[in-house]
C-alpha cells in the first residue's frame, strides 16, 4: 500500500480517537450529542476509506449504515428524548475534566502498547486500526464510568460500539450479515434504553443514576 493512502487512513482513525476525547470534554448534553454525531461521521469516513483501500465494496454498506443510523437517527432520537425529559442543562461529571483527560491518555497509551505487541507481523494498516479501535472502546468505557447522567452513559456505550466497528473493518473479512445484525441490535438497544430512561425518570424524578444506588442503599 502506498504512503498516501496509509496516511489518510491514519488521519481519519486518529481523528476518531480525537473526537472520543472531545466527547469526554463536553459538559452539555446537546453538545455531547452533536459530538457523537460527528464521531459517527468520522467513523463513516474511516470505514469508507478502508472500503476503497481494501477494495471491499461491502464495507461501503457498513459506512452507509453507520452514517444513516449513528450520525442521523440515533442523535436525533436522543435529542428528542433529552428535550422531552427537560434535562438539556449540565452533565454532572464524577471526576473533573483534566484528570479524566489524563486517564484517557493513559488508556490510549495502554491500548497502543498492548495492541502493537500483540499484533506483531500483521498488516500495518490493520495494526494501527486495532490500536485505535481499542483506544476508542476504552474511552467509551471511561465515559460510562465517569458520567452519572443516563443519557451520557448511553452515548458512552454507543461510542464504544463505534470502536468495535473500526476494529472490525481494520481486520479484513467481517461478513456483512454480522455487520447489519450489529447495527440493528444497536438500534434495539437504543429503544430499550429510551424506555428505561423514561421509567427511571418516572420513578426517581431524575436520570441521575446515583438515585438508583440510593434506592438500593448503596450510596456513599
Amino acid at each position: 500500500m502506498d504512503r498516501l493512502s496509509f496516511d489518510i487512513a491514519h488521519l481519519v482513525a486518529g481523528g476518531l480517537v480525537l473526537v472520543s476525547f472531545m466527547l469526554l470534554y463536553q459538559d452539555r448534553l446537546f453538545a455531547l450529542l452533536n459530538m457523537f454525531a460527528l464521531q459517527a461521521v468520522v467513523l463513516a469516513l474511516s470505514v469508507g476509506w478502508q472500503a476503497y483501500v481494501q477494495d471491499a465494496p461491502h464495507l461501503y454498506i457498513t459506512a452507509a449504515i453507520t452514517l444513516a443510523f449513528k450520525a442521523i437517527v440515533i442523535p436525533v432520537a436522543l435529542h428528542r428524548i433529552v428535550a422531552r425529559l427537560g434535562i438539556h442543562r449540565e452533565v454532572e461529571t464524577v471526576v473533573a475534566t483534566v484528570p479524566t483527560m489524563l486517564a484517557g491518555i493513559a488508556l490510549v497509551s495502554l491500548s497502543m502498547v498492548v495492541m502493537l505487541r500483540v499484533t506483531q507481523g500483521a498488516d500495518a494498516l490493520a495494526r494501527e486500526d486495532l490500536a485505535f479501535a481499542l483506544s476508542v472502546v476504552l474511552l467509551g468505557l471511561l465515559m460510562m464510568v465517569t458520567r452519572r447522567n443516563a443519557v451520557s452513559q448511553v452515548v458512552g456505550f454507543m461510542s464504544l460500539e463505534n470502536g468495535l466497528i473500526l476494529a472490525a473493518t481494520g481486520a479484513k473479512g467481517m461478513p456483512l450479515v454480522v455487520e447489519i445484525s450489529v447495527a440493528f441490535s444497536i438500534l434495539i438497544a437504543l429503544i430499550v434504553i429510551g424506555i428505561f430512561l423514561f421509567r427511571i425518570r418516572e420513578r426517581f424524578d431524575s436520570v441521575d443514576l446515583q438515585a438508583l444506588d440510593e434506592s438500593r442503599g448503596e450510596s456513599r
Partner: peptide
C-alpha cells in the same frame, strides 16, 4: 500527549 502517542503508531 495524544499527538506524541499517535506519532508512535504511525
Amino acid at each position: 500527549l495524544l499527538a506524541t502517542l499517535l506519532r508512535f503508531v504511525s
